[in-house]
């Protein structure tokens, strides 16, 4: 075990990220070409740590569209080839709440039922360098969800005025610190206690039972009326994982590829079956699916809430739909 505590001076941040990037693809919080904050592979860009990113870091693990298989047509057979995933990845500066979203993915893809080898390959080579929050974000409610401390991370970081406090949280994290020891300085600084309170709250006591009882509540109809089904919430959500599979030909009808792409329960076609039958036709039914999957359904198979309390869906919603308010209204009706 490493006994010393280290800080990464901000003047060394880029040197550190460059050194890491030699071994792995390092996703960092930054601005995208449209000015929105997100996580992108490090290429020398300015790092954004002032607040929560607009987009979640989930695209480091599950890209909006990713190739899973290549199918090569031969004269009397089809070659089925699993597309190899880029080995070695780090999500640098992932916030504690977002590490819980990764935990939800791990439970779903690696623990529940059959293991998904596609996710396993990506996850096995992904490191998490968590950056703890020292003040509340605009719409987060991590204290309500119990996600204010990071989980499953390899490094833990705390931002200070001129440096990042950094400590190993796993053996892989320890190896990294040893390897890049030259860029770090020894410190006497101790990890501070996190003593801020989120502005938003969500009462989670018996929430699943209460929401399940409120399946036919009028609240869904009222909120559903406003819902634009724009899917913004499912795009920015760190734990929304619903995907579809899609085959695409490569130029002709000989060779093709199979993609996994983000899907959204807010779209009508999400439940469309042969013969154009749609099981969730109304906006309210699709809003309910989103909220219930976050706060109730996921627990059945995976023993945790899918909502990790980052509040991004609230920040992004163009009509101000707020799942904490929906939950509170249903609680007042059915508790």
């Amino acid at each position: 075990m490493i006994q010393e505590k280290f800080v990464l001076k901000k003047e060394n941040l880029h040197a550190f990220l460059e050194a890491l990037s030699k071994d792995m693809e390092v996703f960092v919080p930054c601005h995208n070409e449209n000015g929105a904050t997100t996580f992108l592979p490090y290429n020398g860009q300015e790092i954004y740590t002032a607040a929560q990113t607009f987009y979640s870091p989930k695209q480091a693990l599950n890209k909006p569209s990713e190739k899973e298989f290549f199918f090569g047509k031969k004269s009397s057979s089809v070659e089925v080839e699993r597309v190899k995933q880029n080995g070695g990845k780090m999500i640098f500066g992932i916030r504690p709440c977002d590490t819980h979203a990764v935990k939800a993915f791990d439970k779903l893809y690696l623990e529940y039922g059959e293991v998904d080898p596609f996710y396993r390959e990506k996850r096995d080579s992904t490191l998490l360098a968590a950056l703890v929050c020292t003040e509340p974000c605009s719409n987060g409610f991590c204290h309500s969800m119990g996600t204010q401390e990071p989980t499953g991370h390899d490094l833990l970081m705390v931002e200070k005025a001129d440096s990042f406090y950094i400590e190993a949280a796993s053996s892989k994290g320890e190896e990294l610190i040893k390897k890049h020891r030259g860029l770090l300085n020894i410190t006497k600084f101790q990890k501070p206690e996190l003593n801020f309170e989120c502005k938003k709250k969500l009462d989670t006591r018996n929430l699943k039972e209460i929401l399940d009882k409120g399946f036919f509540s009028k609240v869904w109809e009222e909120e559903g009326k406003r819902d634009l089904n724009c899917t913004s919430c499912t795009q920015v959500c760190p734990s929304c994982y619903c995907f579809l599979t899609l085959d695409k030909f490569i130029l002709n009808t000989e060779n093709s590829e199979r993609f996994r792409e983000w899907d959204s329960c807010h779209l009508q076609r999400f439940t469309k079956v042969a013969g154009n039958h749609i099981f969730r036709k109304s906006r309210e039914s699709r809003l309910r699916q989103f909220v219930m999957h976050k706060l109730s359904y996921f627990q059945k198979n995976n023993d945790m809430m899918l909502c990790i309390g980052c509040g991004r869906c609230i920040s992004v919603c163009p009509v101000g739909i707020d799942l904490t308010e929906i939950a509170a209204k249903i609680r007042s009706e059915f508790e």
């Binding site: 399946f215 994982y241 599979t245 079956v273 099981f279 109730s296 996921f298 059945k300």
Partner: peptide, 24 residues
């Protein structure tokens, strides 16, 4: 029941009916 599954293994959530997976 009929749903349009995309994975068959309770992961993609297309066949989720009030928390129950038609596929698994």
């Amino acid at each position: 029941l009929e749903r349009l599954m995309h994975c068959g293994m309770g992961k993609c959530a297309h066949c989720n009916v009030a928390g129950t997976y038609v596929c698994t």
